[in-house]
């Protein structure tokens, strides 16, 4: 083997792989619009992308798993935590987290209301990109949910509705990203420890405006219409009394899934 041989090998090889890369790039480029549902890429989303860049967000956070590793991944944060909560959070992160308790705190960036709305629209759009199934399990900002063990985390295909509900709670429905079932542990929403007793009390609360007559009915209503009753021993809603909990579950969960979740929560005596 001479230098001329290896030189030829280098140039031909490089040319072949460069061409292959360019061909794949052209094909990929044409598929991106569909995979990222570009029809929903509104001006709000565009402005939000600029907010994301201008405030250097990806040098602390990751998005689609890319960025720095100093703050949580935000790929599905809007789907997990809802716009109402995030609006309050970004205006003043210290309202919800403390360095003493959580180890880290996001700086107060002085974002305008418009910027907050835009960046939430951007993150919501990113959360709907077809990512080839990443992340395989929801990545949570805070909160503990031991999902690896079926006995603890519930079983998706079980006969027992409460076990199916438990699997949903800890898995695809990501309830566990905001609600702990430990007494007194507040993640974003109130702890669901003893929620059945709490539900029975709340339907008799003078501030209750809903239609439920039993604990199970209350829990179903709380999933589908979270603002029907705002728990008053913490910050769980915007000043306009809109619950931080997303009001999207009527669309995203099937009716039988809601029943499974209710069945599970009814075990939280």
């Amino acid at each position: 083997m001479t230098k001329a041989t290896t030189r030829r090998w280098f140039f031909i090889g490089t040319a072949v792989f460069t061409l292959a890369f360019i061909a794949l790039t052209i094909h990929t480029h044409t598929t991106i619009a569909g995979r990222t549902h570009e029809d929903r890429l509104t001006d709000e989303v565009r402005r939000g992308a600029h907010v994301w860049a201008r405030y250097n967000c990806e040098n602390c956070h990751t998005l689609l798993g890319e960025g720095a590793y100093y703050a949580p991944d935000l790929t599905q944060v809007v789907q997990q935590r809802g716009a109402a909560y995030l609006t309050q959070f970004m205006a003043n992160p210290a309202q919800f987290y403390s360095e003493a308790r959580d180890g880290r705190l996001m700086p107060t960036l002085g974002l305008s209301t418009q910027e907050i709305t835009d960046v939430i629209a951007f993150l919501d759009w990113v959360g709907r990109i077809d990512t080839n199934g990443w992340p395989p399990r929801p990545i949570l900002t805070s909160g503990v949910a031991v999902r690896a063990m079926p006995g603890v985390a519930g079983v998706a295909g079980a006969d027992d509705p409460s076990s199916r509900g438990k699997a949903l709670f800890n898995g695809p429905a990501v309830c566990a990203s905001c609600h702990s079932i430990e007494p007194g542990v507040v993640l974003v929403g109130p702890s669901l420890s003893g929620v059945v007793k709490a539900a029975e009390a709340r339907i008799h609360d003078p501030q209750y405006r809903g239609t439920a007559r039993t604990a199970a009915e209350y829990l179903r209503e709380a999933i589908l219409k979270p603002s029907a009753f705002i728990v008053h021993d913490g910050v769980y809603a915007s000043p306009q009394r809109v619950s931080f909990m997303p009001d999207t579950y009527e669309r995203t969960l099937k009716p039988e899934e809601v029943e499974d979740l209710v069945a599970y929560m009814m075990t939280l005596q």
Binding site: W9, F10, W134
Partner: peptide, 26 residues
């Protein structure tokens, strides 16, 4: 030449390992 040939042979299409989860075809 062998070394830089190997670099491009693997590294150009190897860019794909950054693409897995960002919204590109499988």
């Amino acid at each position: 030449y062998v070394i830089v040939g190997l670099t491009f042979l693997s590294g150009i299409l190897g860019t794909g390992h950054h693409y897995y989860w960002i919204g590109v075809p499988q």
